[in-house]
């Protein structure tokens, strides 16, 4: 779930409030984002992606609040990691979208599984 809005990073643009599919965030005093309905969060991380200041942090646990602090979030080293790896904004040149390789990766897995099955059969002495 969304756990942290790092207050001194939030620039108050409101983008996270607008894009949240579950309407979890709201604008607090001074326009900064606040977590208004945490239990509704679906842990999709998409608010992080749309936050140009890397002010948001989602914890992977889905079923309960983990009470992560801003300090703990920063200590993971992964605040902003989703936006960086996705190559959004200033990361476009260094983190290109490699999603198109997905088909070939699945194919590698399939061929490896066939190989493994062949090896297993040979070890069982059931193949000629």
């Amino acid at each position: 779930m969304i756990e942290v809005v790092i207050d001194d990073r939030c620039g108050g643009c409101g983008d996270c409030v607008d894009v949240c599919p579950s309407d979890v965030l709201a604008r607090g005093p001074g326009g900064k984002a606040v977590i208004a309905r945490q239990a509704d969060c679906q842990t999709c991380y998409l608010c992080e992606l749309y936050c140009p200041e890397d002010a948001l942090f989602v914890w992977p646990q889905t079923d309960s609040v983990a009470d992560v602090t801003a300090q703990q979030a920063l200590a993971t080293g992964d605040v902003g990691g989703f936006r960086r790896d996705s190559g959004w904004d200033e990361h476009a040149a260094t983190h290109t979208n490699q999603h198109w390789r997905m088909g070939a990766i699945f194919e590698r897995a399939r061929l490896m599984a066939i190989d493994a099955a062949k090896t297993a059969r040979t070890e069982d002495g059931r193949t000629k």
Binding site: Y45, P60, T76, D78, F82, D85, Q98, H99
Partner: peptide, 26 residues
């Protein structure tokens, strides 16, 4: 552990969300 090294390296840019739980939970 059977995932080849070259795929591990590119994984964050193929599926950026898949690696998040591991990265965050150490």
């Amino acid at each position: 552990d059977r995932i080849p090294q070259d795929i591990r390296e590119v994984m964050p840019q193929v599926q950026p969300n898949f690696v998040r739980p591991f990265a965050r939970m150490g």
